[in-house]
């Protein structure tokens, strides 16, 4: 459980970054945090593992106040995949990169071997096991940075702009991974602008604007708030737009593909 109570955060020069945030994310929930550039999304998620401490108010994760615990302690349960993989990759080999956090957290050797094998398989990185992470392509680096966080199975997974630089196949893989993670009862928080990716995947959207929470609710309901979506410089999914235009009413569920959308639109004409 993640709980933000009356949270304010000011940057060192005194500029406000977050204002009066009250937010609760339950265990096992899948939510997305959206907003324009500089809305405070990344600042908000950095509070969840204690990298940033609120100027006012409290952030609790599984009942522990983040102000009173070290980042390393909180990170055992909260994994953050940062936007740029270049800021974290350093090890000699891909295998050692994944092992880095497992070693820091003092997990058993057997668990380490199992997890390294599992994530390498899942992210299709097995063939690079002994290669340098620095030689991978940008998409592969991104996958490796996600794999190195998934390795220790944190209870809360935070993905900061996970679709940047990922092709359609890898985006589908990412969706699959998010699904698997939530099936295991883990919490997933995605920070993204990509509504095409989020629609149909994330049931709850939280929208930030200038450091304040402006919307929090079901994805389908929020997507119908035209002014809000446009005001935050977001684009509605194209299939949703088309369906609403042709049928006049919103679908209240997502479409897997164009054919799904076409069936739903044609249904109204039968």
């Amino acid at each position: 459980m993640i709980e933000f109570s009356d949270v304010d955060f000011d940057y060192p020069q005194g500029q406000p970054a977050l204002r009066d945030i009250n937010l609760s994310i339950k265990t096992g929930e899948l939510v997305a945090i959206l907003g324009g550039n500089g809305a405070g999304k990344s600042t908000l998620v950095r509070h969840i593992n204690g990298l940033l401490k609120p100027t006012r108010g409290t952030v609790t994760v599984f009942g522990n106040n983040t102000r009173k615990a070290s980042v390393a302690e909180i990170s055992r349960r909260v994994g953050i995949v940062f936007q740029s993989p270049d800021h974290q990759l350093f090890a000699e080999t891909v295998e050692k990169e994944i092992d880095f956090a497992l070693r820091n957290f003092g997990t058993s050797l057997q668990f380490r071997h199992e997890r390294i094998r599992d994530v390498l398989d899942f992210f299709d990185l097995q063939k690079y096991r002994s290669s340098s992470p620095l030689k991978l392509s940008s998409g592969e680096k991104k996958r490796l940075s996600i794999a190195s966080i998934m390795a220790w199975k944190p209870d809360i997974l935070i993905l900061d702009e996970p679709t940047v630089g990922q092709d359609a196949f890898q985006q589908d893989k990412l969706k699959e991974l998010v699904g698997l993670w939530t099936d295991e009862g883990k919490t997933v928080v995605i920070v993204s602008h990509d509504l095409e990716f989020l629609w149909g995947l994330v049931p709850r959207l939280i929208i930030l604007s200038d450091g304040s929470l402006v919307a929090d609710g079901k994805t389908e309901e929020i997507l119908m708030k035209e002014e809000l979506i446009q005001g935050e410089s977001l684009h509605k999914p194209q299939l949703l737009d088309l369906a609403v235009m042709l049928r006049g009413t919103p679908p209240y569920h997502s479409f897997q593909n164009a054919s799904d959308a076409a069936k739903w639109i044609l249904k109204s004409r039968e």
């Binding site: 593992n49 980042v71 990170s75 953050i80 940062f82 800021h87 974290q88 956090a101 820091n104 220790w152």
Partner: peptide, 16 residues
């Protein structure tokens, strides 16, 4: 600032 981001990323993976 790059250094700060790197530090954040590694601290989030348990580096003390």
């Amino acid at each position: 600032l790059d250094g700060l981001r790197i530090m954040d990323a590694q601290r989030s993976r348990g580096l003390e």
